[in-house]
Design a protein around this nucleic acid. Sequence first.
DNA 1: TGGAGTCTGTTATATTATTACATCAATTGC
DNA 2: GCAATTGATGTAATAATATAACAGACTCCA
Lengths: 131, 131
Amino acid sequence: MSTPQLTKNQALVFDVLTKAESPLSAYTILDKLRDQGFRAPLQVYRALEKLLEYGVVHRLESINSFVACAHPDENCHNHGLVAFAICESCGQVIEFHDHEVDHRLMDWLRSQKFKPEKATIEIRGHCATCS
Amino acid sequence: MSTPQLTKNQALVFDVLTKAESPLSAYTILDKLRDQGFRAPLQVYRALEKLLEYGVVHRLESINSFVACAHPDENCHNHGLVAFAICESCGQVIEFHDHEVDHRLMDWLRSQKFKPEKATIEIRGHCATCS
DNA sequence: TGGAGTCTGTTATATTATTACATCAATTGC
DNA sequence: GCAATTGATGTAATAATATAACAGACTCCA
């Protein structure tokens, strides 16, 4: 699945996320886009929904925030599992793909006859510069 | 760290979680405890905070809910990493500990000089009986 | 006995996310 | 062409989740 042309709102939201140093909450994005005419949370959430679907944005469940995918070129859905290390101090996120972890988890899920649809791996702590 | 004697509120919350078939949100717990005198969300959140600290309850970030730990006897903090498979249909949760995954992730974090404090691994999908 | 620490109760508020409904534009099928 | 459908948008209202701030009660123990 390739990423289709983004709509105006989607492009605005994606742009804000791309330029951000760290993950942003939906309401932070909203605030940053008020000048561009955004007035309501739904404008953000709807754009995010699509961007997540296209795999160009990730949602960090443990902090209710969103980041642009670290791999602008490739499509993140093809990587299988993605893990995130999130710094509690500076907020920076390191994105990580590992087939070993992926396989191991998938093997276990298979053994449980569990059909996975979506996975979340988030490690919170302190990054090299903050610790 | 062993689990200290629970206070009244902690015991009530823990009891509700233990008897539940699937994860509960804080507000669901609150509703279930209104008869026992609970009136405000903080009563639940404060108890949960302690139960999480003791390792007898887990928080599922991806669904904003809480489950009793599947290992009543042992202390979950000793297991290292815990992974959860969460069924989208029936809500049931399977808890999973794997040292392989654990080591692999920790190795990677070390290579990044990232100091982990808390990890979240949640896989959502459909369990054996629901798929 | 009187601090220190912890747990509790309560009100208010902050933060995150969705429902519901209306409009507009592009596309499709006839 | 033109109704019908689909998808994106705008807006207001509300739901669901979580925390702040303040006060009172209780235990421990020096």
